[in-house]
Design a protein around this nucleic acid. Structure first.
Length: 506
RNA sequence: GACCUGGUAGCUCAGUUGGCUAGAGCAUCUGACUUUUAAUCCGAGGGUCGUGGGUUCGAGCCCCACCCGGGUCACCA
């Protein structure tokens, strides 16, 4: 996007840029200027007794405030760690006859948002502010647009905050520059992912990458983004899941694999849905869903500890404790306990009656499994606040899951609910290729009945199973939603650097 | 997709029952100031009121359509 008309302030800055060049200064110098110190560490470590250790410091960053006092000025420098005050006096940075560097460059041509590098010593001002006394001042990069100025008083009150969500998400670079508190969310997100990675590394579970462009969008039920490969002249789909590929790797002989990556679903957008989102899937051979529940408890309490310092997280005023063990609640029991109805002996017709009693309007295409899921969603889901494994789902809803070892009509599946939201979905994986084929065929029947979310049959995946897959358990965890929980955010947009937006008007 | 709500200066906002040249703070520009910190003080400039139509003597305000956000619901098993 290019602006045809410049605002008053943009014209001033371009004018300043030109004057800097005319003064013989390169506003975008090529040579390196690596900092020796960061703002926050100086502010944390400096004392007058240790002044000797801070006699020569070099800092870099953006000028975020400028208070000119005549022959001396105070600047606020913001680097990746925080802010620190700079003291710039005329005769220090321009000791000779020529005072241009101070009188013109610092006082007039230096704008808020410009990148500068400084060298000097640290001291404490009269009012007790740790400050860098600048001896050498260098331009590192000019800013041609005015940043929104956010002011804070000594009590921490914020004035004129840059709050418009549209502008914040469209210009995340501006948002994170002037609202550094939001950086913390992304730092925590990174910590969360790194914790998971080292946790799985330690257990010999290998990180892998599988195709994002898939000829068949298998492994989940959702509408895909469709695209086309020109050379092969074939349709391709952005993956909605990677499950079937990771299972092929279990077939191939890896005992444990996982992938953290983007999935793409062509569905609606809201506070908890972005068209592309990050999912982690883990598959471990020779284990079952009970083991996976144990592992999930350990993993999440380690993640919570890494992100917040202990196993508890305050989410929207509720203390969530990630220390295991979590409640394990069969879905039919969840409906009985939280909905007050025992549906364990009911058939499809009985469930339809219960649905209507509970204010749900069952669709004709809904089968037994969908009816159970709707009842659970309506009656129980919102009541599961602390981490809870809901287990043993109807087979219809779980075409990739092994049937339950004792309970007829159910499968060995669990979903983890926290604060009423699904955070993880896991199975004892179905590894019988004949049963798997039947399940796919049932899905085709559902599709024929009008269910446009029914799963697609993948012949190559079935061929892989026919070669033999060991007993395996697998789990999928939504990384964005986990990050939301761990950072106390209600909107997925706050945990994505660049959430999806409609195209900007010209 | 439905409903609710919003879009006014670079940013955050005010703008009365439709009525003088559309306002404020910060930011910007002039000037003063060598320990200030929401710096202060003097003076000044800056607007397609989201876009396009309509009603009216007159529209930021009323009506219609559209664009872009936010919220709720539906959808997302």
């Amino acid at each position: 996007m290019s602006d045809t008309t410049l605002t008053e302030q943009e014209i001033v800055r371009r004018d300043n840029l030109q004057k800097i060049e005319e003064a013989g200064i390169n506003p975008f110098p090529p040579e390196a200027f690596p900092p020796t110190h960061f703002a926050s560490e100086i502010k944390a470590d400096f004392t007058e007794e240790k002044a000797e250790a801070f006699k020569e410091v070099r800092l870099t960053g953006r000028v975020m405030n400028k208070r000119v006092m005549g022959k001396a000025s105070f600047l606020e420098l913001q680097d990746s760690s925080g802010r620190i005050q700079l003291y710039v006096s005329r005769d220090d940075i321009a000791p000779g006859e020529d005072k241009t560097l101070y009188n013109t460059v610092v006082k007039k041509l230096l704008d808020i948002g410009d990148f500068v590098g400084v060298e000097g010593f640290v001291f404490t001002t009269r009012v007790g502010e740790t400050t860098v006394h600048v001896k050498n001042f260098k331009f590192l990069g000019k800013s041609l647009r005015p940043l929104p100025i956010v002011k804070r008083d000594e009590d921490g009150n914020v004035y004129d905050a840059f709050t418009d969500p549209e502008l914040r998400y469209r210009m995340r670079y501006v948002d994170l520059t002037v609202n550094p508190q939001f950086r913390e969310i992304f730092v925590k997100r990174n910590k969360l992912v790194r914790t998971i990675q080292s946790f799985l590394d330690e257990r010999g579970i290998m990180e892998v990458e599988t195709p994002i462009l898939q000829p068949i969008h298998g492994g989940a039920a959702a509408r895909p983004f469709a695209t086309h490969h020109n050379t092969l002249d074939m349709p391709l789909f952005m993956r909605i899941a990677n499950e079937l590929y990771l299972k092929r790797l279990i077939v191939a002989g890896f005992d444990g694999v996982y992938e953290i990556g983007k999935m793409f679903r062509n569905e609606g957008m809201d506070r908890t849905h972005n068209p592309e989102f990050t999912m982690m899937e883990i598959y471990v051979a020779y284990q079952d869903y009970n083991w996976m529940m144990d592992m999930t408890e350990t993993l999440l309490s380690e993640v919570a500890t890494a992100v917040t310092g202990n196993t508890t997280v305050n989410y929207q005023g509720t203390e969530i404790d990630f220390a295991g063990p979590y409640a394990r609640l069969p879905i039919l029991d969840a409906i009985k306990i939280h909905g007050g109805v025992d549906v364990s002996e009911m058939d499809e017709e009985g469930l339809r009656v219960v649905c209507k009693e509970k204010g749900i309007h069952p669709d004709k295409t809904w089968g037994y499994g969908k009816l159970i899921d709707e009842l659970f969603g309506e009656l129980a889901e919102a009541k599961l606040i602390q981490p809870t494994f809901v287990t043993d789902y109807p087979v219809e809803m779980s075409p990739l899951t092994k049937k339950h070892r004792t309970k007829e009509g159910l499968v060995e599946r669990f979903e983890l609910f926290i604060k009423g939201k699904e955070v993880a979905n896991a199975y004892t994986e179905l590894n019988d290729p004949i049963v798997q084929r039947e399940r796919f065929e049932d899905q085709l029947k559902l599709a024929a009945r009008g269910d446009d979310e029914a799963m697609v049959l993948d012949e190559d995946f079935l061929r892989a199973l026919e070669y033999g897959m060991p007993p395996t358990t697998g789990i999928g965890i939504g990384i964005d939603r986990l990050t939301m929980l761990m950072t106390d955010q209600v909107s997925i947009q706050e945990v994505l650097f660049f959430p999806q937006m409609r195209k900007e008007g010209e």
